[in-house]
């Protein structure tokens, strides 16, 4: 009984320690991602990305895998076996527009990307968080409404990191199944600002049209919307 008590206590202690490590792992990774400053500037002097590393359209995951490798060190002495790491970024790339001047209202647009990695910090192509859907990154980012959104305006960003670790523990020697620990961390990209949003003009082009039709006796106009 004492042995069981000791083992049980150690098991629980180790579980919490692992969970704490995993929490630190996720948080550290999120903060490291959030501190990635944009370095890619194209020939025109235009910052090419508007979120920490990859975008939905282009970019490289090299930086993320490096950060992952660094964060894995923080897991020691626990091995990262069975670990999965998912990082997603949501950036508001176009602010919602109210109906104005005959132009229909448009919702905000978001650029989201997700990179999933395994215990070797190799990308897997999985989408553990998912960028869309009720539990996806965008939903997590914008919450239930404007005031509860972490993405409060053009260029705002949220980084979501979800780390999972298979924890077999001592019981794992007996049981075939291992417990899965999951920790989620969020961070706001430190350099998030509307100035980092690309391909957004300061003045959206109005969509109103001016139409004329003329005959031999005059012209009629319509201000189309």
């Amino acid at each position: 009984m004492l042995l069981i008590l000791v083992i049980g206590t150690l098991e629980v202690l180790m579980l919490y320690r692992t969970e704490e490590k995993l929490n630190a792992f996720a948080g550290s990774f999120a903060q490291m991602v959030s501190l990635q400053e944009i370095a890619a500037v194209n020939a025109s002097g235009v910052v090419a990305t508007h979120s920490p590393v990859p975008t939905s359209n282009s970019g490289t995951t090299t930086g993320l895998t490096d950060l992952c490798a660094g964060a894995v060190y923080g897991l020691q002495p626990f091995p990262p076996n069975g670990m999965t790491l998912a990082v997603a970024s949501v950036t508001e790339t176009a602010a919602a527009q109210a109906a104005s001047q005959g132009v229909a209202a448009t919702p905000a647009l978001y650029d989201e990307w997700e990179v999933d990695m395994n215990s070797s910090c190799a990308t897997t192509g999985a989408q553990a968080i998912g960028t869309t859907g009720s539990n996806g990154a965008v939903t997590l980012a914008i919450g239930s409404g404007a005031s509860s959104s972490m993405v409060q305006g053009l260029g705002d960003n949220i980084i979501i990191v979800r780390a999972s670790l298979q924890y077999p523990g001592i019981l794992g020697l007996i049981l075939s199944s291992a417990q899965t620990l999951t920790q989620t961390a969020v961070a706001r990209w430190r350099y998030a600002s509307s100035t980092n949003v690309t391909n957004v003009t300061a003045t959206p082009a109005p969509s109103s049209t001016l139409e004329f039709s003329c005959s031999g006796t005059g012209c009629a106009s319509n201000y189309g919307v």
Binding site: S34, S148, S149, Q152, G153, T184, R188, A192
Partner: peptide, 26 residues
């Protein structure tokens, strides 16, 4: 951090509050 960053960008205390509160909640 999220709130202070948002405050810096948006220059609006309410925005900073909302960002910080939501970030904490998540």
């Amino acid at each position: 951090l999220a709130g202070a960053g948002a405050y810096q960008v948006n220059k609006d205390g309410t925005v900073a509050y909302n960002v910080a509160a939501t970030a904490f909640s998540t």
